[in-house]
């Protein structure tokens, strides 16, 4: 265990533990946009930055990836540099996704109501946090979508920007998306997502549409639970 200070409060942590987890445990509020307990850290969004003072130097680090070590003396979660980086990131994201309420709300907390830049019109609400891709790969285990291209034109998409064989229509990406960018629609027994149409299964007990048949087949294959059981919706099971 090592001891150091966060904003003047003495905290204790295990070596190797991420700063973000320690700070949150002690009730400090640090915003994140690409971090998720189930997915871990990726270091993309940069809003979780804090300033760390060690014996040798003071520097800005991403708290979600910075491991606690003996060298840490003090951590500042709201220094001028920290605020500058967060404010800048949120202004840049607001210019990218002007329609996103989540970004607008967070930006306002740092005094940004309108970005000084020309607003993008083609990015929707996607901030490229990559959580959907990581969910699809690591949680669902299908890798139907990926992060395509390079630089400012990067985009989340299934391969070749067309309906993907791998997608099972589970909608986990939609659930994890922090800004509500990913389009999914259930209508008349059909689910539309990532340019693909899925037939929804009807629960034999309550008669409700509940999940794409493809998803149930995927689960059945993976868990050896027979389809008949899976066709019953979770409420009626």
């Amino acid at each position: 265990m090592v001891k150091f200070k966060i904003d003047n409060k003495v905290v204790e942590a295990k070596e190797g533990e991420y700063l973000l987890d320690v700070a949150r445990r002690y009730g400090f509020s640090i915003p994140t946009l690409c971090h998720h307990e189930a997915l871990g850290s990726d270091g993309r969004c940069r809003v979780c930055v804090v300033e760390v003072k060690t014996r040798w130097r003071k520097r800005i680090v991403t708290s979600c990836l910075f491991p606690v070590s003996k060298d840490i003396e003090e951590v500042y979660t709201a220094s001028e540099d920290v605020k500058l980086v967060r404010r800048t990131v949120l202004e840049l994201l607001l210019a990218r996704c002007p329609e996103s309420d989540v970004i607008r709300y967070m930006a306002a907390k740092y005094g940004i109501t309108e970005p000084r830049y020309k607003k993008d019109t083609d990015k929707g609400k996607c901030i490229l946090c990559n959580m959907c891709v990581r969910t699809c790969e690591n949680i669902v285990g299908v890798s139907a979508i990926g992060i395509i291209g390079k630089g400012p034109e990067k985009k989340i998409s299934p391969p070749f920007r067309e309906a993907s064989d791998a997608c099972i229509g589970c909608g986990a990406c939609v659930a994890v998306c922090p800004t509500g960018h990913i389009f999914m629609e259930d209508k008349d027994g059909i689910r539309l997502i990532w340019r693909k149409r899925f037939e929804l299964a009807v629960c034999p007990k309550c008669g409700r549409y509940h999940a794409p048949v493809e998803q149930l087949e995927f689960i059945s294959k993976k868990t050896n639970v027979p389809m008949e059981e899976l066709l019953v919706c979770t409420n009626c099971r």
Partner: peptide, 8 residues
């Protein structure tokens, strides 16, 4: 390998 990795 997932096809999307090749496309990436």
């Amino acid at each position: 390998i997932p096809v999307v990795k090749g496309y990436e």
